[in-house]
């Protein structure tokens, strides 16, 4: 059985940091989200990716399988979400307060790290990267009408992924001072994302519609089952399997927005969907973690 203290050690840090962001914003202090987004996306995450793949030993075959599994989860998950959103006749809104960070980053990364250590974080980052590239290209394509590789190539994350691919190969390593520097700089990514998530929850005054709650819960379940099935299909090892299921369960929030554009559906707003998804996943994830640790 999972002990309460074990689960508290994983969940409480996440809740505390979200709460700090929440109350910081509610007490009318400034939290410059744009600045933090730049720090995280241009500096923190790229450095974290390079640092983690310099520090851990990771099996190439296992990583390849994990990448394919992640892509499959994102694709199938995307299609299912699209059907769901269409079924429930969701949303469109003229404004775009989509959350600054996706939940696979802001919730998925700390949970991967706290529950399965640095190796867990490495898999969590791979999944996060796949969703980010997927939704980034999907989102960019919808907005601009064409796929933009040009923009993608200007993101530091893209370059850090290329470096990480080299780092997975045995025999390639970076000088110590680069590893030190990226390790320290990478440490800002996780706490800053959680603080911004809290700040988002503090800023949005949202009402709950039962439909939103239902869709969120269904999304969560579908993701969970999908994660289990794909993990079985690829015969993933223990940690990889746990992280795949964990990350698959976390709703890819930006899909809410993308599909609302694609299907030109109407109704309440995307912010509400984001708000509800965040809260529901924050509440449901302890259960899923407990299950994962028990069945690990």
């Amino acid at each position: 059985m999972v002990q309460f203290s074990q689960l508290a050690a994983i969940m409480l840090p996440v809740y505390i940091m979200i709460a700090i962001g929440f109350f910081w914003t509610r007490s009318n202090r400034t939290l410059d989200t744009d600045l933090i987004a730049t720090l995280v996306n241009k500096i923190g995450l790229p450095c974290l990716i390079i640092a983690i793949f310099s520090r851990i030993e990771i099996n190439i075959n296992e990583t390849q399988k994990f990448v394919l599994a992640s892509i499959l989860v994102v694709l199938i998950g995307g299609v299912i979400s699209a059907i769901l959103v269409h079924l429930f006749k969701f949303f469109s809104s003229s404004y775009l307060p989509v959350m600054t960070f996706s939940l696979t980053g802001s919730l998925g990364l700390p949970l991967s790290l706290l529950s399965f250590g640095e190796k867990g974080l490495a898999y969590g980052l791979v999944f996060f990267t796949v969703t980010t590239i997927g939704t980034y290209r999907g989102g960019g394509a919808t907005a601009a009408g064409n796929l933009s590789f040009d923009k993608l190539s200007r993101e530091p994350v893209t370059w850090s992924i290329i470096v990480a691919v080299f780092l997975i190969w045995p025999g390639f390593s970076l000088p110590k001072w680069i590893i030190d520097t990226t390790w320290l700089l990478g440490a800002i990514a996780i706490p800053l994302q959680l603080l911004v998530t809290g700040s988002f929850l503090g800023r949005i005054e949202s009402k709950f519609h039962y439909r939103t709650v239902i869709v969120s819960i269904v999304q969560l379940f579908v993701g969970f089952i999908l994660g289990i099935l794909v993990a079985e299909l690829f015969h993933l090892s223990m940690t990889a399997r746990a992280i795949l299921i964990l990350q698959a369960t976390i709703p890819v929030i930006i899909l809410n927005y993308i599909f609302s554009i694609i299907f030109k559906c109407e109704s309440t707003d995307v912010a509400e969907m984001d708000y509800v998804s965040t809260i529901i996943s924050a509440l449901a994830l302890p259960l899923i973690l407990a299950w994962l640790i028990n069945n690990g």
Binding site: A8, A9, M11, I16, A187, I190, P191, L192
Partner: peptide
Amino acid sequence: PPSWLSNTTRILGGMSIPL
């Protein structure tokens, strides 16, 4: 200290030197 406290302070503390 309990591990939830040491985990929280380690992660939040990690921001200080780079920032």
